[in-house]
Design a protein around this nucleic acid. Sequence first.
DNA 1: TTGAAAGCGGTACCAT
DNA 2: ATGGTACCGCTTTCAA
Lengths: 349, 349
Amino acid sequence: MKKRVTIKDIASKLNISPTAVSRALNDHSDISESLKKRVQETARDMGYTRNVIAKRLVTNNSNTIGCFMLGRQDIQEETFGFHLIGGIIDEANRNNYDILLFTTSSSTEQGKDYIEMCLERRVEGAIFMGLRLDDPYLDNISQAPFPTVIFDTELPGTNVYCVTSDNRTGIRRAMEYLWNLGHERIAFIAGHAQAQVTKIRFDAYREFMEGKHAFLEGLIFSGDYTRQSGYRAAQEILVSKLKPSAVLVSSDLMALGAIQAFKDAGLHVPSEMSIIGIDNILACEYIEPQLTTIAQNPFKMGEQAVKTIISCLEHRKQPRRLALEMELIVRGSCGPNPYSHTQRTLALP
Amino acid sequence: MKKRVTIKDIASKLNISPTAVSRALNDHSDISESLKKRVQETARDMGYTRNVIAKRLVTNNSNTIGCFMLGRQDIQEETFGFHLIGGIIDEANRNNYDILLFTTSSSTEQGKDYIEMCLERRVEGAIFMGLRLDDPYLDNISQAPFPTVIFDTELPGTNVYCVTSDNRTGIRRAMEYLWNLGHERIAFIAGHAQAQVTKIRFDAYREFMEGKHAFLEGLIFSGDYTRQSGYRAAQEILVSKLKPSAVLVSSDLMALGAIQAFKDAGLHVPSEMSIIGIDNILACEYIEPQLTTIAQNPFKMGEQAVKTIISCLEHRKQPRRLALEMELIVRGSCGPNPYSHTQRTLALP
DNA sequence: TTGAAAGCGGTACCAT
DNA sequence: ATGGTACCGCTTTCAA
């Protein structure tokens, strides 16, 4: 490790004080233009690069946001998570913040909780992606002494914020779309209980169905967000008494599995069975038929998480929960209900 | 920002020196067990968390690796990049390194090159993902004064290393597989010139074909790694004089586009046209037929990048280029050459 | 407009 | 085994 040029080196070379150098480099107003120029030039000539670590120590200000990538095992998160990160870095760097990235495996092994890792690095805020309800450090996060954003999960705590998608509206739109195609027996495939959205999505479905007096326990099936579980759930649907003509599936991955199951059973999608997923993963476009889905906007969610943290840091009040709009992307996996003689064309508000 | 407990606070509370506290906290061997215990307990009681920033300043050692996510526009990178990052963080955290994540947009706007950003933060090494050959800071990277790993790109420079996949072997295996299915007119769809692997992949293809005395310029088609370009290239193949019976495509995404083009033209895959991609993206399994492909191992590549940097830091010599094994994943997109009466069964070394 | 000096929170060298 | 102290590189009063 070779010696680096410091402001003292510049100062002594120029026969001025380190103070002056510091202020010249930081473009303070109380330094003469001529000195500034001289300092900046010699700094460049000497190959000086400022030491942010020293600066952070003295200003007691890390300009850093910690970001935890949790539960990567969930394949569903892959492309979604990548865009989330993209949005986070973009927005952070734009505001001169650094992003420190952590993963779960190593940290927890060492017995350090998330918040302590942040505290040690004097991180100013933290973002959690892929947090599960059975995470052992849940209430640790709740007590974070700095602004914290969790995707898709609302936790108690004064510094804890949630950035998510407006699943309720998104699902309502999808359900209305199906309903208007004449479907009334609309099944639902849920995800696992360790994700907070699981319940939110189910509630949205239920709310719609009850509004139509069409809610039936027998239409509910469950999975765990994996493709395999979607396949199995679809098999159950096939033998169910209620003979649903459409399914709303809590994730695209499960929907992909479901489509496969229907195909394998010789049931044609969409003419005999309509299906809608959630997420808008890449594969939606490649499967036959292309999957109609409710899309989230992960990049924007990432940006929003950082915005929320920075706003808190600047003492601007933030809503505890921010739900970004979802978009129904209509492709080829839905058709009119073949059993219905009363297909609606355009109805309802 | 409330006042934090420091080592000195603990020292004065215990009437000992800060030195002793520091050493007790760091579990040095020259401190009595009893003192260690006392110190650690009071530290906990007082709510002390060590300040890594201060430590980094004094030890002149950031324990941090910078990671640049470049060219995210390339959809191909999505899931691949996510695993790359996963591997990087895992391995870094396991070795007590932090990962600082950067993106291109903001940094370059501010006129700061990659290396300067690293230098300011006293980063000990850097990793570049998605670097393109037309990046304006290419020779800036070459001169990095710290170990640097670039995925899939070899650059001159004493501190620059390359972690990639062994495309040559991977492609040879795929080509042999096709050849053994009786294909001799094997077309190739290349990527754009801004990625170094583009040439490597083409060379591997060419080498094989020339070895069989089957190389023909007319079998080469080009794309830019997007699905659309794969579609277009496939259309050209359809009208080409040489009537290839198989195609090796430089990325799965292009292969997906190509399959679509063949389908649209009424050509059946794999009975009338065999096709192999590279990458093993998620969608390979969802398309009909499932796509045979040459898989990379992005997670392992990420780990390897970090290992390389840490090895350099520990003065262990590293190879300038490390190519990880690729695996031919046989699925349903290849079949025997229908025009060939001489289908080989098992041949060649 | 510039300078001197006191830290920020640790670590490490040299004593004891 | 423990303490005194200088110092890492920078910023920030306060004084000149």
